[in-house]
């Protein structure tokens, strides 16, 4: 059994103080593995990544990354801790006024006083890993969605993090690009000895590379286990989620008044 890199204990979080996005979540993320966090849209998967990265603070509870209690860190310590975390944003989030090369050089230039030739070597190395060494002069606007994500991936590993977080890395890609990204995540994890956290709701791709899966819903962890364990699970919720049935414990309808009553009331919009 490997070590636990991220320990989340009894975390509560709410955006507005009314609706809890998280109500007592416990979660362990093992070191060196690929862990998938899954759940329907809007459950707060992105929010979870931002809690781990310290961009949000939980209302209560503890978020521990590599032995450091993230919500309690001082600003300086938090910024140091983040150098060792890479995050791939859903949109790529490339800096639009810099070309591909400069985007990847950006975090290096911000934190280290390296010579130009050294920066060039590092950037080309990262670009080679994602297969885009030839695209270094292009601007983000000239890239396709899949290329953007690969450049963003190269940028996220520019500072050699030990933890990579991926926010919906499979959404909105054509099948070929999708395949590239899936194998890239797996390769990077093994080649660089990373710990990877993938947030996604794509069952097929995620199950194909994850060592460990965690399904969230309504602010709680509903199920955890290896992909095989979840596929064979008896729980009605897990069955519905894994097989994508429209109805089951997870309701199709947003909570509302009774339908006929709502129609007859005729006001109160």
């Amino acid at each position: 059994m490997s070590n636990t890199l991220i320990k989340i204990r009894d975390v509560y979080f709410s955006w507005d103080g009314k609706r809890d996005i998280y109500a007592g979540v416990d979660l362990d993320i093992p070191e060196g593995k690929i862990t998938a966090i899954m759940g329907p849209s809007g459950t707060g998967k992105t929010t979870l990544l931002r809690l781990i990265g310290g961009q949000l603070k939980p209302t209560s509870g503890s978020v521990e990354v590599a032995g450091q209690e993230i919500p309690k860190l001082k600003r300086k310590e938090l910024y140091l801790a983040r150098r060792k975390m890479g995050m791939l944003f859903q949109s790529g989030a490339l800096l639009t006024d810099l070309n591909v090369f400069e985007n990847i050089a950006f975090p290096i230039r911000e934190h280290y006083e390296f010579s130009e030739s050294m920066i060039r070597d590092i950037v080309l190395m990262k670009l080679e890993l994602v297969g885009l060494r030839g695209a270094r002069q292009l601007m983000p606007a000239e890239l396709s969605g899949g290329m953007k994500r690969r450049v963003a991936l190269a940028r996220a590993i520019a500072l050699d993090p030990f933890l990579m977080m991926y926010d919906e890395p499979f959404t909105g890609l054509d099948p070929v690009t999708l395949g590239t990204i899936v194998s890239l995540i797996k390769e990077l994890n093994d080649a660089l000895g990373l710990t990877s956290v993938i947030v996604s709701h794509d069952i097929g791709e995620t199950f194909s590379i994850a060592d460990h899966v965690c399904i969230l819903s309504e602010g709680k962890v509903m199920a955890t286990g290896s992909p095989e364990e979840l596929k064979n699970s008896d729980s009605a919720f897990v069955k519905q989620f894994v097989n994508g049935h429209p109805d089951g414990p997870m309701p199709f309808h947003f909570p509302a008044d009774e339908y006929t009553q709502d129609l007859l009331a005729g006001k109160d919009l």
Partner: peptide
């Protein structure tokens, strides 16, 4: 920059967007 997550991505690169 905020809407396209550029500011959030800077934060995660340990660059404070307010200062940078």
């Amino acid at each position: 920059m905020k809407a396209t997550e550029q500011l959030a991505s800077m934060e995660m690169m340990a660059v404070d967007p307010v200062r940078r």
